[in-house]
């Protein structure tokens, strides 16, 4: 297991390096004169004139500053690393809670559908998940806003949750203050991502339930709950772990839209602003962060998978 972990880690490092290099190349080979300023600003100051360094030298400088955690300086946003890191907690909170909700929704609905395959309930849920799966995150967000804020108000009640922002006006006094602001965005993300997970879970469960060992488990007189969850779901969910690794970038891009809808000052919104503001430094920093997040997510998924499924551990050991 340890050598497996080390090997995966090595692959992740190479991948991260690749991601960074692709980011560099995109900017270096992009047309326009932005690039030299942008890549050289990694040194801490925007270079105005002087001889342009060659590709190799610029790349070396850039990787060097990257290793020091320096993402350069943007005229618009200042120190890019600082600018993005200040937003990271909000995006992380949203992504993690959205992911948890997505898994709970998705797996719950998927298992229910598989257990009731072919019934009207199954078909209704299939319709629902297809709609939610193809729905843009902002649309789901607006619907939720209507359901939890505007509808209750029309009925004379107070809104159930705050609509936008990350903390109460004037600032949070404790971590708990952030939670109400997380509810609608996380629900939005959870529903959109959960729909995909539900569709996957339903299919995987149906496949798992058709396996011999599920029939064997039934033949042993185990209760349907045990059969569904211990024997069916457990094996059906193993691939979900790696699916979640793949989902991580989807989760983050989902966060871009959700943060925009709910005016949450996270990395996603910062990148959205950076696009409109032609703030290449921030855009590149954000892309790097998302790329690294994807690599780390896949690494975690790989390790979890190896830990959860004994076959993988053995396969790589053998």
């Amino acid at each position: 297991m340890l050598s497996y972990a080390i090997r995966r880690l090595a692959v992740a490092v190479v991948l991260a390096f690749g991601v960074a290099t692709v980011c560099f190349a995109l900017v270096w080979f992009a047309p326009g004169d932005e690039r030299s300023d942008l890549l050289l600003s990694g040194r801490g100051a925007v270079v105005d004139t002087g001889p342009e360094p060659g590709l190799v030298e610029a790349y070396g400088d850039w990787v060097g500053s990257l290793l020091r955690g320096d993402l350069g300086t943007s005229e618009r946003s200042g120190n890019v690393a600082r600018w993005l890191l200040a937003r990271l907690p909000h995006t992380l909170a949203l992504s993690v809670s959205g992911l948890v909700l997505a898994v709970v929704f998705g797996v719950g609905v998927g298992v229910l559908q598989a257990a009731r395959a072919g019934t009207v309930l199954d078909r209704l849920l299939t319709l629902g998940t297809v709609v939610a799966y193809s729905a843009p995150a902002f649309w789901v967000g607006i619907l939720l806003g209507g359901a939890f804020i505007h509808k209750p108000m029309e009925l004379g009640m107070e809104p159930l949750f705050p609509l936008t922002g990350v903390a109460p006006p004037g600032g949070a006094t404790s971590l708990l203050d952030y939670i109400p602001y997380l509810v609608l965005p996380a629900l939005t993300l959870g529903i959109v991502l959960g729909a995909g997970i539900a569709r996957y879970t339903r299919a995987a469960m149906l496949e798992a339930l058709a396996q011999d060992y599920v029939r064997s488990a039934r033949a042993r007189g185990l209760s349907e709950m045990r059969v569904l969850f211990r024997h069916g779901l457990r094996t059906a969910l193993l691939p979900l772990i790696s699916l979640l690794g793949v989902y991580l970038p989807v989760l983050l891009t989902g966060a871009v839209f959700v943060e925009t809808v709910f005016s949450r000052t996270g990395i996603g919104l910062a990148m959205m602003e950076a696009i409109l503001g032609q703030d290449l430094q921030v855009l590149m920093g954000g892309a790097l962060m998302f790329g690294f997040a994807a690599v780390v997510g896949n690494l975690i998924a790989d390790l979890l998978y190896g830990w959860a499924d004994p076959r993988i551990g053995d396969a790589v050991r053998g």
Binding site: Q211, D212, Y213, R215, S216, A217, R218, A219, R220, G221, L222, R226, R230, H231, R234, T235, L238, A308, D309, P310, R311
Partner: peptide, 29 residues
């Protein structure tokens, strides 16, 4: 099932849950 009448199937490879140890599957019964 399992208590009065137990079944053994043709293919032992697929009759056991691949994700659980042999012991845990027996203990479950």
């Amino acid at each position: 099932r399992g208590k009065r009448v137990a079944l053994v199937f043709q293919d032992p490879t697929h009759a056991l849950n691949p994700a659980l140890t042999v012991g845990s599957q027996i203990r479950e019964v």
